[in-house]
Amino acid sequence: MNDIIFLIINGITVASIYGLIAVAVSITWSALGLLNLSYGFIFSFAGYGAWLAERHLYGEPIFVMFMGIAAGIIGGVMVCLLVFIPVHDKPNFTIRGMIGTLAISLIGGQVLLQNFGPKAKLLPEFFGYGKIKILDVTLTADKIGIICSSIIMLAIVVRWMKSSRRGLEIRAMMMNPHAASIVGIGVRKTGIYVMAVTGAMTGLSAVLLSQTYYLSPFSGLTPMIKGVSIALMGGLGSVRGAVIAAIILGFNEALTTKFLGGRYVLMTQFALIIIVLIIRPRGIAGILDKAREA
């Protein structure tokens, strides 16, 4: 029983990191109509930003974390300026935007490889090495830290989107981009906000994941694909759906590892996603709220 709880906590830890990317993918898709497949690059970019800050500026964990988030914001805005703003009003925007973000991740990955080499880098442990024991289950500090910081990040973003003027603009864009632009919401300006916020989320997930695993020029690909799968299962465009899907997939990962073995995690995960999508083609959010039509 204990190891199941241990695995579930593991699964939730990983799911909270991937969930951040999933929410980022979801928000970008629903607000901008942009399928951003360059989150892998933004992830690595933010990780290297944090690593550089730790090496050359100041090694305090909280500072490194914020530098990672800042690098994520820069990466997101960069993608927005290079792809979204030039292409968003042109024909075939969705496919051109997607290919543009792929091109950025191709170029960016190679540039990172040129500058930092293929060797993996490690970020420091942000949350120390403490342990807490609750009901025979040992919780390490980094797991608690990861779960808490991603929940805080998500809460801030959701709160900001619910209560601020900019958040209102973004939500208006999610509902109906045409109507939003008619009532005077600037598509380009909103695009920059959205990409900055989602970049910050990706940056946080990068620093959180890179301290437990490692950082390399292409280490963002797997988190991005996982994030995209979660977003897909949750329903593109829905934050609630993405959170629910992240939790379900986290449980699935834990249970599959326990009963079938780690090799079958992806298989059961995709079986689950396909089943959900065959029942609800718009993901879990198809039940909750209306997802954006392509």
């Binding site: 969705t94 997607m98 694909i225 995209v228 799968s229 897909l232 995709f270 996603i273 999508l277 392509a294």
Partner: peptide, 15 residues
């Protein structure tokens, strides 16, 4: 339809 399927197949590729 459309990009939902594209993202799913991207995941299948990874699988």
């Amino acid at each position: 339809d459309g990009f939902y399927y594209g993202l799913l197949t991207l995941g299948l590729n990874e699988l």
